[in-house]
Nucleic acid binder design. Structure first.
Length: 220
DNA sequence: GCGACAG
DNA sequence: ATCTTGTCGC
């Protein structure tokens, strides 16, 4: 039968790139002290289209300094574990449109805490070569273990994520690409303001839905 | 076979 | 993620 999407080929690629993520974490490119720009990445969907957005924020002033979007065909359906193949194309295009290169990316979804250790956060980070952090609103994979009052998520033999409780909800923070788990958690906590999501993702969520509405209203 | 399953 | 009005509460 003709396959619209080669599942085994996609998972094979993820298992392979997972190794590069592990290698990147041993020598993190992310320089916390010098980091000034973070990009929040998210996407919305409508009529077979994917609206990917990238919102750039200044970590010192915690203000939005730039934001871009890209509309692409949502070719692949959503399949747990393969979210990146549906969502990354639009998000990456929007990211490349930014006037300045971010020091780190915050992606809506998991990174290492993924069945094959290569969720969308790792995917986007590796493809662009920019350190990344995954922030999901629910669990996907891994074993949770509490140590010193901290809810860690182990995956593929490594301490891959942390469950951060905030505003009555839980945030699954995980290593995306070229960052340590400690850096990932600090970045998320630092950008946690008055919303359930860290500011970069909250702003990205708002923007992607704004563009989607604009698209719905424009094309009846 | 059964349960889990990012957005 | 998306489909969807009003409504209860701070």
């Amino acid at each position: 039968m003709v396959e619209l999407f080669d599942y085994s080929r996609a998972t094979r690629l993820q298992r392979e790139l997972f190794k590069q993520v592990i290698a990147s974490v041993e020598r993190p490119l992310f320089r916390e002290d010098e980091a000034r720009l973070v990009a929040g990445l998210d996407a919305s969907y409508t009529r077979g289209l994917s609206v990917g957005v990238a919102v750039l924020m200044d970590l010192h002033e915690m203000r939005v300094v730039d934001k871009k979007y890209a509309v692409v065909r949502a070719g692949i359906p959503y399949v747990p574990g393969l979210l990146a193949f549906r969502e990354a194309p639009g998000v990456i295009r929007a990211l490349l449109e930014l006037e300045k290169k971010p020091d780190v990316l915050m992606v809506d979804g998991h990174g290492l805490t993924h069945p094959r250790g290569f969720g969308i956060a790792s995917h986007v980070g590796l493809v662009t070569g920019i350190p990344s952090v995954g922030v999901a609103k629910s669990r996907l994979y891994g074993e949770e273990k509490v140590e010193g009052g901290v809810r860690y998520v182990y995956a593929h033999g490594v301490k891959a994520g942390v469950v951060v409780e905030h505003g009555g909800a839980e945030l699954y923070v995980s290593i995306g690409y070229s960052v340590t788990l400690e850096q990932a958690v600090r970045l998320v906590k630092k950008t946690l303001l008055g919303h359930k999501l860290p500011e970069p993702l909250y702003q990205a969520d708002l923007y992607s839905r704004e563009v989607k509405r604009l698209l719905d209203r424009k094309t009846p």
